[in-house]
C-alpha cells in the first residue's frame, strides 16, 4: 500500500513522492529495529544512528547499510540543491529508492501489523454472549516468504487503525478463556482461542 501511494503521488508531485518514500524507509527501519528489540517503541533515534545500530548487530547486510546512507545523501542533495533538479533525475532516484524499500522488506524479520482493529468476542460458540471488557484484534504476521493472521484479546478502549505496525507484547497477568468470533471476511463463526494472554502491544 505504501509503495502504491508513492507511485500515485509521483505522477503529479515527484518531489513530494521522494519525501514520502524517504519517510517510509525511515519508518520501516524503525519497525525493523523495534521488531528485533534493537530499539524500544518509545525510544527516539535518528535514522543514521538506527542504521549504524542495526549494522552493528548484523541485522542489515553491508550493501543495504551503504544504500540507505547513499539514498539519504542523494535525497538531501536534491532537497537542498539551489538549481532545479530535472524530473527525470527525481524519477530515477524514486525508482532506485523503491527497489531499496523492497530489499529492506527482504530482511528476515517478522513484522506485525493490525489487520482488523477490533471485532466482538463471544463466550459461546453461537456468538450471543459478548465479552464486555475485551474485543478481538486480528494481527497480520509477515516475514519474507510467509504470512499469517491471528486473533488476540485486547481492551475495548485500545484504538488502532488497520495497517498500524505494532510491537510484540502480551500481558499474561490477564488471561482470557475460550472465545469465539464472527470472521469479518467470511461471516462464519470461528473459535478465537482456548485461553490466551492479553495483547498489550503498542503502535511503532
Amino acid at each position: 500500500a505504501a509503495i502504491d501511494k508513492i507511485v500515485d503521488l509521483s505522477a503529479t508531485e515527484p518531489l513530494a513522492a521522494l519525501l514520502k518514500l524517504s519517510q517510509t524507509l525511515e519508518k520501516e527501519l524503525k519497525v525493523l529495529a523495534v521488531s528485533t528489540a534493537v530499539l524500544r517503541s518509545n525510544q527516539r533515534s535518528s535514522p543514521r544512528q538506527l542504521i549504524r545500530l542495526m549494522a552493528s548487530k548484523n541485522i542489515l547486510p553491508p550493501h543495504t547499510v551503504e544504500s540507505l546512507d547513499q539514498f539519504r545523501d542523494v535525497r538531501n542533495k536534491i532537497i537542498h540543491e539551489s538549481v532545479e533538479i530535472s524530473h527525470s533525475t527525481i524519477f530515477k532516484v524514486l525508482d532506485i529508492g523503491l527497489q531499496l524499500l523492497k530489499t529492506l522488506r527482504q530482511v528476515p524479520v517478522e513484522v506485525i501489523t493490525v489487520n482488523h482493529p477490533g471485532i466482538p468476542i463471544y463466550k459461546d460458540e453461537d456468538c450471543v454472549e459478548e465479552y464486555e471488557e475485551v474485543k478481538g484484534i486480528i494481527l497480520y504476521y509477515t516475514s519474507p516468504g510467509t504470512e499469517m493472521t491471528k486473533i488476540w484479546p485486547v481492551r475495548k478502549n485500545v484504538d488502532f487503525q488497520k495497517g498500524d505496525y505494532v510491537t510484540k507484547d502480551w500481558d499474561c497477568n490477564y488471561q482470557w478463556g475460550q472465545a469465539w468470533y464472527i470472521d469479518p471476511v467470511t461471516d462464519k463463526k470461528k473459535i478465537a482461542w482456548t485461553g490466551v494472554c492479553e495483547f498489550v502491544g503498542v503502535r511503532v
Partner: peptide, 22 residues
C-alpha cells in the same frame, strides 16, 4: 554532474544490496 554520479553510485549499491538479500 556530482548528483548524477551519486545517483549512479546509489543504483549500483542498491543492486548489490538486492543480490545480497537473495
Amino acid at each position: 554532474v556530482e548528483l548524477e554520479s551519486n545517483v549512479e553510485q546509489l543504483r549500483e549499491t542498491v543492486e548489490k544490496a538486492e543480490r545480497e538479500s537473495l
